[in-house]
Every structure is written in structure tokens, then in C-alpha cells.
Amino acid sequence: MEMRKPYFTLYQTAILSLCGALVFVAKTFVNLSLHLPGHSYLLVAVPFVFGCGVVRKAGAGAYIGLISGLLASFFGFEAYHIFDILKFLAMGVTIDIVGVAFSHRMDHPVVGFIAGGAGSIVKMSVNYAVHLLLGVPATFILLGIGISSVTHLIFGGIGGVIGALVLARLMRAGVIGTNET
């Protein structure tokens, strides 16, 4: 019987796991105090875009989202622990879709902006869906979704650009190879 090769190599699994842990740390322990909704995604989108850009395989964002969601669920400080897995997983899957649509060119700032912004918007939408599911009145959610969606898009997009620029710089320096397998 022939052994199948794993989808992610050990190197890729380590990178993705570290990026998932960085997402958890950025969301939980780093406080920018900008008093705007979605401002934390300035830092949260960076590991997502970076990890997906290093690995360049479909499923990388979902893996990062799963790891960060599990960490947030077990150790997080938000009220809806188990739903953190779903929220971060949705963000990762969205960034995966953007990565596949743009041939995994996460080192380009425009792709980074689209990936970070879209991931942040989807995570915000899943968060509001969870609140609706748990009985928060829809009027409160509709009032908060307008400005919140714009700031999530902006901060997530800027975080994606930062991740893309860091990734591109490391690729140019030769620290990260472009055809890692």
C-alpha cells in the first residue's frame, strides 16, 4: 500500500499554525484604542495574507482561520466562544477564495487589500449573523452595520496591504522561496 503525501508539508503546516497563533494574539492582546469598529483587523489581516502568500495553496486561509478560531474559542475573552471558530474560519475561507481568484498572488498590494477587506467584511457579517441567531434585535444590528462595514473594509484592506508588502519584501530578499512545496 502506497503512502499518500500530505496536502501541506511540515514547513507549510508550521507557517500556517504560527500565522493562526499570530491572528489570535493580534485580536486578543494588541489594543490600538482607535475607538472605531474593525480597527483590530489592521493587524489581524496581516498573518492571514502572509500565510496564504507563503503557502500558495487553497485551504491555507481556512487552516489559519481554524487555528485562530480554536485558540480564540478556548482562550479568548469574547462572550460567544464556540462561534469564534465559525467567524475566523469564514474569514480564512474568504481569503482563500480571493487567493484562488488571483492565482495566490498575495504579494501584490491590491490583492492584499481585496483579501484583507473581504475577509474582514465576511467575519463581521458572520458575527452579526451569530448575534441574530442568539436573539439580538435586528434593529440594533442594522444600525451598527453601516459604518462598521466601511471601517472593516478599510482596516482589513490596510492590514492586507501590510501583509502583502511584508511578503513581497521577504520574497525579494530571498527569505521566502516562490515555489515552496
Rank of each mutant, 00 (worst) to 15 (best):
S33L: 15
H35S: 14
L36Q: 11
S40Y: 05
Y41T: 03
P47F: 07
R56G: 11
G59M: 07
A60P: 04
A62T: 14
S68T: 02
S68N: 02
G69Y: 00
F75K: 06
F75V: 08
F77M: 04
E78A: 06
A79N: 05
A79D: 12
Y80D: 01
Y80R: 00
I82Q: 13
D84G: 00
D84E: 04
I85S: 04
I85G: 00
L86D: 08
A90F: 06
G92M: 10
D96K: 02
D96W: 05
I97V: 15
F102C: 12
S103H: 15
R105Q: 15
H108T: 09
P109F: 00
V110R: 03
G112L: 04
F113A: 11
G117V: 11
I121S: 07
V122I: 05
V122M: 09
S125F: 14
V126H: 06
Y128V: 12
L132V: 10
L133V: 12
L134E: 03
P137W: 10
P137F: 10
L142Y: 02
L142D: 04
L143W: 13
I145R: 02
I145P: 08
S148W: 12
S149P: 10
L153A: 15
I154L: 13
F155R: 14
F155C: 14
G156E: 05
G156F: 04
G156Y: 09
G157A: 07
G159I: 06
V161G: 00
I162H: 05
I162M: 13
G163E: 02
A164E: 12
A164Q: 10
A164S: 15
V166G: 15
V166R: 03
A168T: 04
A168M: 12
M171Y: 09
M171K: 11
G174K: 05
